[in-house]
């Protein structure tokens, strides 16, 4: 059951992620990215991160991607023109990426060969209560700093977006 779960949603994630990269229209990419994020939330659930799964849907799919789609609709962005890009990127890009991916996978298999199997329910520390407790005790300072960061981001976005009004 755990394997089937992982394989099904892992496959959805990979197919949607490939779609993000190969689609020429930004809206298609955005919809695929929503698929990636939704399936990742389900994988988080399997890994016992309940709060993160909910936050993934609320923050990423519910807010960030809506913002993306909003901007794409607002700018009425059409399909990308067939820009070719530099020669080196076209020739070496895919092989180099495959080498990079192979290296990463090899390192992972080498370093984490003795990890145990992932069974749903082995780790229950990701509930909202546990995350909240850690967030407001051990990680209080980073949490407060993040809130300041968000404030700065809000102000920055407002200043950038209101420039054309005057």
């Amino acid at each position: 059951m755990n394997t089937v779960f992982f394989l099904v949603f892992g496959l959805i994630v990979v197919v949607c992620a490939i779609n993000v990269v190969v689609q020429r229209h930004p809206i298609s990419s955005a919809i695929s990215l929503i698929g990636v994020m939704g399936s990742l939330a389900i994988i988080y659930l399997q890994l016992g991160a309940e709060f993160m799964a909910a936050a993934q849907i609320i923050v990423y799919t519910g807010a960030v991607m809506v913002l993306f789609i909003f901007v794409i609709m607002l700018l009425n962005a059409g399909s990308e023109e067939g820009g070719k890009g530099p020669l080196t990127v076209r020739l070496l890009g895919v092989p180099l990426l495959l080498v990079f991916l192979g290296l990463l996978s090899y390192l992972i298999q080498r370093l984490f060969s003795d990890t145990g199997p992932v069974r749903f329910g082995d780790f229950k520390g990701g509930s909202p209560a546990d995350v909240g407790r850690a967030l407001f005790s051990t990680y209080l300072l980073p949490f407060e700093i993040t809130s300041v960061l968000i404030l700065i981001a809000i102000l920055g976005a407002i200043v950038l977006a209101r420039k054309e009004l005057d």
Binding site: I27, I31, I34, E50, F51, A53, A54, A55, I57, I58, T61, G62, A63, V66, I69, F70, M73, S127, P128
Partner: peptide, 24 residues
């Protein structure tokens, strides 16, 4: 669900896609 309220918030935050994508 023991994250029932979060689930409702999550699902309702997805509701905007039907409207936004349909209109686009």
């Amino acid at each position: 669900l023991n994250i029932g309220v979060l689930f409702i918030l999550a699902v309702s935050s997805l509701g905007v896609y039907g409207v936004a994508l349909g209109g686009w």
